[in-house]
Amino acid sequence: MNFFTRKRSATSAKERLQLVLVHDRTDLTAGQLESLKDDLLKAISQYIEIDPEAVRIELERDGRSQRLVADIPLKTPSRHRAG
């Protein structure tokens, strides 16, 4: 590892702990969170067209509570206009 590009260790400690604590508190593994996201996207796609690449679904900490935050940009329904 290069000395100049290496992240100082306290920064890694904090980032790693942020993730670990969210999973510990919600009792949700990273794998389970992934399948939750997939299921959520599938459900939404039945009604509206979305770009799976642009979707952001994350567990966030807010003090001692957790929230599931989703940012799901919708696709412009261009083919309807063209038709």
Binding site: R8, S9, A10, T11, A13, K14, L17, Q18, L21, R61, G63, R64
Partner: peptide, 20 residues
Amino acid sequence: TLVKNNDMLSAEDVLDLLGI
């Protein structure tokens, strides 16, 4: 000293993580 060199979590970091 470690906190100053960013090689130890600061008190603020720990407080923010634990939220108490």
